[in-house]
Design a protein around this nucleic acid. Sequence first.
DNA 1: AACTCTGGATGGACCGCCAC
DNA 2: GTGGCGGTCCATCCAGAGTT
Length: 326
Amino acid sequence: MECSDLPLSPSLIESFLMSSPPLPQLTEWTRYENKLFENALAEFDLDTPDRFEKIASRVPGKTIDQIVKHYESLVEDIEFIDSGHYPIPDYVTIDELQQEPDHQASKQSGFAKGSTSGRNCDRRRGVPWTEEEHQLFLLGLRKYGKGDWRSISRNYVLTRTPTQVASHAQKFFIRLNSKGTKGRHRLSIHDIRSVNSASKPLMSGNTNFKPIAPAPAPAPSPSIHTPPMNFFPAAMRSNFPISNISNPPTASERRVLDSVPAPFGQPAFYNYNGEGSPALNNYSGADMNYLSNEFNAGLPSNTPMNKATFDHSYPPDSHHYVMHSR
DNA sequence: AACTCTGGATGGACCGCCAC
DNA sequence: GTGGCGGTCCATCCAGAGTT
């Protein structure tokens, strides 16, 4: 397929929704925030009472007004697409379009104009995987197995689409199988084969290791499902995506949590999206008590959210651990 | 500088599911 | 049974970084 022949595919729409249109009148939306927004949008349909309030509660740091404006801007853009105008993912500015007549013409004609060779297309360089993302990938791989990239993407590597996860997995397994068959290998993120085990020697102990890319921009926010790795004792870090929190933090609580430094702040508390994950069913009640104590000990003394327990008795299937915040 | 390697993105083939 | 659709796998492209 030529690059100029761009169908309105689901992946296109997804990338459109995932991108952060730099609308000047709005505050910046990160990919992560867009993902939260997208998930909340899917969860609360048009008939949901107080829809935008509920969506706002799922997107930390955004006001209801910002949510409404963001929604309206997306609706405008989607209508723009539906009308036959395809906005390229980079959201080039009007000025840029006006300076590139060919570019503009190809857009206005639908998609296919001139159809230069695909090699001439601007194939955007992707964002390198971070070590954290790779660790989450390994956790997801352990949990769902090879092939269920969708689940891994949805429940572990939230910052990557299933296609991206699959692509990453492809390289990972190629790397895995090629180990030893070639004389030399550069160290890469794919040399991390298990959670925790390799990261230290590879990243910090090996002075030859260099990041794949220059230090990536700091992630907009930690994964919604996974608390910081150093929050838990090593023996428990292997798979601990907190799946449910029974009481989503209130706005005031969230402000407090936002002020709490990692690892006791936002990451562990914003996992209240209700998606069940049986990943915690290996842990005993004692483990949960330990986590509660660890968690409570990390909270500042003046936080109103000073009592937390991990409850593995709810719901009845015992596969869901719920962190009670009061 | 030229070559090699890495890794994200992408297109196409293939497969399974589902509605008709 | 068949066609459409969605998803996955695999091969490939290619920019960028590392190596010689």
